[in-house]
Design a protein around this nucleic acid. Structure first.
Length: 555
DNA sequence: ATCGTTCGCCAC
DNA sequence: AAACGTGGCGAACGAT
């Protein structure tokens, strides 16, 4: 019983391995294996310690080896340097080892480019910037060092949970990118035809855009106008007697002119055409699957990012193209009101925890005129809204839910003063300017008082909003990563795979006859993730799972 | 021509 | 209704 820890230096299809004890010290000698995938298959109870999941795992999956658990050294290093006040410092194993031994720290290689699946990349030359791979010895030393540094963090238990959840996320990211989201090209065509009209043979603007352009030109008496040029549009509107500061949709909506309606229609449709039209599909969809590259923890808050394909912004009007194959179903689940529940759990505000029960959290809030006002107050407190109709609502929130209020306010004040904040599990915010931390800056740099007073500058207020939101958003990302890790384990032997994830929403592609089971697993894991992170708080973490054949039917 | 920045929209 | 967090992305724009 007990997890075996094994350090991995990948070498082609094989690897150099070395067993490790719990504290990271080696247990036995290094040994070479010719087939790492075979080792992974044969030893499911192992935690594989390797430099970067993104580099190692794809080949293993190709060889049919799914990895139960790993320790992603680069991800962990990024979390640790952040916690140590060196956010953004190079994260490679060689860089970590150089810091450990006091030698020259190599910079990280530039982020790799998006690689559309349809485009077989014909490399004219191998990029010379690829860093030297670390040796097994360096891997072993850095792992042991990370154990020691984690022990020195404020909450080592939580930080270990963070590393485990992030490493599991990294595995999920590779698996999901490989699986792809089922994308029905015929359904996509039908939706595009309805929105855009007939496709032009030469690839030019489709029928509906052409018609809308003609109508706009006529109504604004401006032949040859390009509606997608803000400058031209502003000029034409000015001639028609309307001087708008910009051409954003909500600004145009306030203008009373017959050309506005077709302009707004044009904007909506134009975006679909350029961002998710036929050209996009040609580039990103292959074999009936949309395959973006996911970057777990690619965002400062720990949220996932994607590289290419715009996977985290699939427009609502095109979701009908996401369809299950015959005999299969999509189980689509999103966490209900995640961020306010996170605020309740981290603040332990008794009133907010009480409201964060199984029902609607906003309905459960007391002292507000109605649900909408309560929602404005809660979201405003987490996003840093200060003006408008939110002001009286925020005052109510402050009076009724003081502990919750204090959490976000303290984070905001820390940020305004140039300080760092941490999520529940220990992710640290970047310092002001994205790299250097406040502590490393000369005194007074961040209170550049104008006229001698201590009013905060616009930059300081913006930074306060960022740190205010960071403590909530980053903790929500941790809950989501934990959820993914739990779901992945629970579905290990089920005919079901995760095919999409965005912030608080998961799509699982599964056999029709296990869909109910999958839905139950999701709701179960949501509660379990809340318990693992926060213990018994009274806060309910809920996932609303729906079993559908089309993403369009999920909302 | 090429590059980086701005605009404006999409998602959560 | 419009100012309030995290992003990606594509076209226009403007500097080199």
């Amino acid at each position: 019983m007990g997890v075996v820890v094994e350090a991995v230096e990948p070498r082609g299809a094989g690897a150099l391995l070395r067993s490790l004890r719990a504290d990271g010290t080696p247990d036995g000698e290094a040994r070479a294996v010719p087939d790492l995938a075979a080792e992974v298959r044969a030893r499911p109870e192992t935690r594989w310690v390797w430099p970067g999941t993104e580099d190692v795992y794809p080949a293993l999956l190709s060889a049919g080896a799914r990895v139960p658990r790993c320790w992603d050294l680069e991800m962990t290093e990024a979390l640790l340097v952040g916690a140590e006040g060196e956010w953004g410092a190079p994260r490679s194993v060689r860089a970590a080892h150089a810091r450990l031994t006091g030698t020259q720290v190599p910079p990280d290689p530039p982020a790799r480019q998006a690689e559309p699946p349809g485009l077989a990349q014909v490399a004219l030359f191998e990029p010379v910037t690829r860093v030297l791979e670390p040796t097994l010895d360096q891997i072993v030393q850095v792992y042991a060092d990370q154990q020691r540094r984690i022990a020195r963090t404020q909450e080592p238990q939580r930080f270990r949970m963070l590393v485990a959840a992030e490493s599991a996320s990294a595995l999920v990211g590779v698996e999901m990118g490989r699986a792809g989201l089922p994308w029905n090209e015929a359904a996509h065509d039908e939706l595009l035809a309805g929105l855009l009209g007939a496709r032009q043979p030469g690839g030019g603007p489709p029928q509906r855009l052409v018609e809308l352009t003609e109508e706009i030109c006529r109504l604004l008496d401006s032949p040859g106008l390009h509606p997608d040029s803000p400058a031209e549009l502003r000029k034409a509107l000015r001639r028609a007697g309307f001087d708008v500061p910009n051409t954003r949709a909500w600004v145009l909506r306030q203008v009373d002119h017959p050309a506005i309606a077709p302009i707004l229609a044009y904007k909506e449709v134009y975006r679909i055409w350029t961002a998710h039209g036929w050209a996009w599909r040609q580039q990103w969809v292959s074999g009936g699957r949309f395959r973006p590259a996911y970057v777990p923890a690619g965002v400062v808050s720990g949220r996932w990012a994607t590289r290419g394909g715009g996977a985290l912004q699939i427009p609502a009007v095109l979701r009908g193209a996401v369809r299950s194959e015959p005999g299969r179903r999509l189980v689509i689940a999103d966490a209900g009101q995640l961020e306010p529940r996170i605020l309740a759990a981290v603040s332990q505000d008794p009133g907010l925890c009480k409201a964060a029960g199984p029902g609607d959290i906003y309905v459960g809030l007391e002292g507000f005129a109605d649900r909408a006002t309560a929602k404005i107050a809660l979201l405003g407190a987490m996003y840093g809204q200060t003006g408008g109709q939110a002001v009286p609502a925020l005052a109510v929130l402050r009076g009724r839910y003081p502990k919750a209020w204090a959490v976000v306010e303290e984070a905001a004040r820390t940020g305004e003063a140039g300080g760092l904040v941490r999520s529940w599990l220990g992710r640290t915010s970047p310092g002001p300017g994205g790299g250097p931390t406040a502590e490393s800056l000369p005194d007074g740099e961040w209170f550049n008082s104008r006229d001698g007073d201590m009013r905060t500058t616009a930059g300081q207020r913006a930074r306060g909003r960022f740190t205010r939101n960071f403590v909530i958003q980053a903790t929500a990302a941790e809950w989501a990563a934990t959820l993914l890790a739990l779901v992945r384990t629970r579905l290990w032997d089920v005919d079901a795979e995760m095919v999409f994830f965005q912030h608080d929403e998961v799509i699982i592609d599964c056999a029709q006859d296990v869909a109910d089971e999958v839905a139950a697993v999701l709701t179960d894991c949501a509660a379990q993730a809340g318990l693992l992170l926060f213990g018994e708080t009274g806060v309910h973490f809920v996932m609303h799972a729906k079993i559908v054949e089309s993403y369009a039917d999920a909302k």
